[in-house]
Design a protein around this nucleic acid. Sequence first.
DNA 1: AATGAATGAGCTTTCATTCAT
DNA 2: CATGAATGAAAGCTCATTCAT
Lengths: 219, 219, 219, 219
Amino acid sequence: MTSPRSPRASPRRLPPDAPEPEKRRAILHAAVRVFAEKGYHGCRIADVARAAGVAYGLVYHYFQNKDELLESVFAEQWAILLAALKAIQEGPGSASDKIAGVLGFVLDVFKTAPTAVRVLILEVARTPKVLRSGSTPETFFSAIGIISDVVKAGQEAGELRSDIEPVVAATGILGALEMTVTGLVVGLVRPAGPPEEQIDAVKRQLEAMVLAGLRAPGR
Amino acid sequence: MTSPRSPRASPRRLPPDAPEPEKRRAILHAAVRVFAEKGYHGCRIADVARAAGVAYGLVYHYFQNKDELLESVFAEQWAILLAALKAIQEGPGSASDKIAGVLGFVLDVFKTAPTAVRVLILEVARTPKVLRSGSTPETFFSAIGIISDVVKAGQEAGELRSDIEPVVAATGILGALEMTVTGLVVGLVRPAGPPEEQIDAVKRQLEAMVLAGLRAPGR
Amino acid sequence: MTSPRSPRASPRRLPPDAPEPEKRRAILHAAVRVFAEKGYHGCRIADVARAAGVAYGLVYHYFQNKDELLESVFAEQWAILLAALKAIQEGPGSASDKIAGVLGFVLDVFKTAPTAVRVLILEVARTPKVLRSGSTPETFFSAIGIISDVVKAGQEAGELRSDIEPVVAATGILGALEMTVTGLVVGLVRPAGPPEEQIDAVKRQLEAMVLAGLRAPGR
Amino acid sequence: MTSPRSPRASPRRLPPDAPEPEKRRAILHAAVRVFAEKGYHGCRIADVARAAGVAYGLVYHYFQNKDELLESVFAEQWAILLAALKAIQEGPGSASDKIAGVLGFVLDVFKTAPTAVRVLILEVARTPKVLRSGSTPETFFSAIGIISDVVKAGQEAGELRSDIEPVVAATGILGALEMTVTGLVVGLVRPAGPPEEQIDAVKRQLEAMVLAGLRAPGR
DNA sequence: AATGAATGAGCTTTCATTCAT
DNA sequence: CATGAATGAAAGCTCATTCAT
């Protein structure tokens, strides 16, 4: 990985107006599945190509190299998450509502696309430093930043307790959320009832716990 | 052709009474450092050998292969953590005290041995499922189990709220803790003041937040 | 950690209709030469690749591993021999004619391609049992079987003596043939005259001896 | 193999009067068993040491290196065979008697020590050229030579046919014998009856065939 | 004599990347 | 755009051999 073999100039980006080629999408989606199953390092380009039903070399037609492929996968996933977070942040409602909204959103996505979430959870921010040169870390920081801002706003409004730094709060929230999803993914957290309701139950409990931990005294 | 080479008779395990060879320790410690720096996949056996100051082949004298080396590293680290968790669980004090104790322990270890924690955090439980065939997953489950038991005891004593399943609570606690440590590792969480006090501050805030989230109403 | 890496999906076998790639042939032929010179264990894949004039990795593109390469070499050589034996068996002539035909065929092949014969002689059927898991042993048994059938037919026709079990006879015939070729290969058997005639002389003598040993009394 | 790492001067030979150390014998015998099972290249010094019940390094105390160990094994086995051949040659009886004696001797040895024969059969004269620098090939030639002399004597006495060169005859005889033993080893040749008698039956048939092939016309 | 930990060259195998078609 | 054969550096693993005890 990251063997800087030939820092080719052209970023291989399609002209901004052209629609994204169908096969590029196929590769990207296949990559998500394969990464989810074997992890970034455990999979070969050949695996992705096969899963996408395209030829070996085509991957290199659309992506500079393996790293860029990973970056693209992450970028796409994070873009969705970030957009949602931003929408929630800028939307109406109290800080508590917004935090609950974030928890709910992630768990809902997990209900419909557990694989994608799994990749985000298990691979992001777990890859060696070298990889950290792309856009991934900034994006990760952004996510923390948004939640952090929501918390700060809540504190200033007197709704949330002020003795906890927003960054620490945001980190704790995301951590609890992430580990809960991991628990679901791994099968550790497995409440009674049909799958759908299981997740809803977990969502309610997590929400209650997190909000109680942040609520300003007397509220 | 390769005659199946009778599946390696000696499990390469030292007799249980013999003291651990000095060089074995050296390799294990070196592995922690190298994994921390480059990640499991990013490092070569040669790196570990060099860092340990031993010959290449000696690694294979003490460990079956790269995987077993990783397993051993994890096993050792987890053993320490689990022992501490158990000691806290069986010790005196209320459920809140014990939970605070767990948070404090992990953050204290981080203060003195951030490298080891980093390996545990960034590499463990982030490797594809298949890998989970060793002792790692059970150990991870054990950790969750212990915290979960502490929570349950607290609930039965009326000290902690009962509307949250112990497993969900335990997962949330560990998640918040882990992400906080990650934040410290990555440099995201970076409160003012000298390093020592920074961590103490984070510890206090995390503790307050977590306990408030679990406290039974009216307490 | 090595995710089990789904057992190599493609058996690396070309579709039965496609013509064999030129380079695959080149590798196979080079392998024969190199095995002949250094023996299976004494040669490296690098040697074969160099002798074939192809890149290192291409060997692994066409063959699973070193063992499979050896198997392929053997399979090819044996296939030729077996086909010839079968043709002789099913052709016209008495049992004696057919046995003489077999002796002649092998020694003729040796005249034109001593290298290939050398590989077959020195490497085949001399490798530990375990190795025998491929197709080699069955093929070897087939060869014995064919000769054995020829002998049996000759016995039933009253042409050959009946007090010797066909299998024993076949084994003796092939053994004498093989050792003779080995003697020629090693330079032990070295009659006077130019090479061509040397071999012919040996052929006549071997034939006379073998047939006299099998002839039915009174013929 | 044969990496001429340090052509140490001392041949590691014990003083000619001293009795052979018990452990040296143990190693030699273990080597025979292990070679028989896995072949020369398929076995490790560790295998031999373990089979002999001695420590790793002791093998190197008694033998220069792996090659010398193989040489010693062969030398010992061949010495037995050669001594027997010579005894037969110099003993009384006609050429036919002597040839029958050779066949009988080898098959008898096989009855009592099939393993040792197997090593001689399957490993000797099948090892890459490089190894041929020791005493092995000469010994092999000697065996052929002795039989060859017996044949020649028989020809001069008018007992055996003269139209076959003694070397060719000797090669054929040994080849038939060797392949027959191989057949027994591999389980290909498997006549009816209890094991003991099976071998005797094979012996009689082989003898009849070989002698008929060599007898002078009119005898 | 005996032991087995220690060494390291060498070999097999993998797989990201290139390129001719 | 698409293909997949071809390349070769890199890394894991083996095992003969040495050496301190």
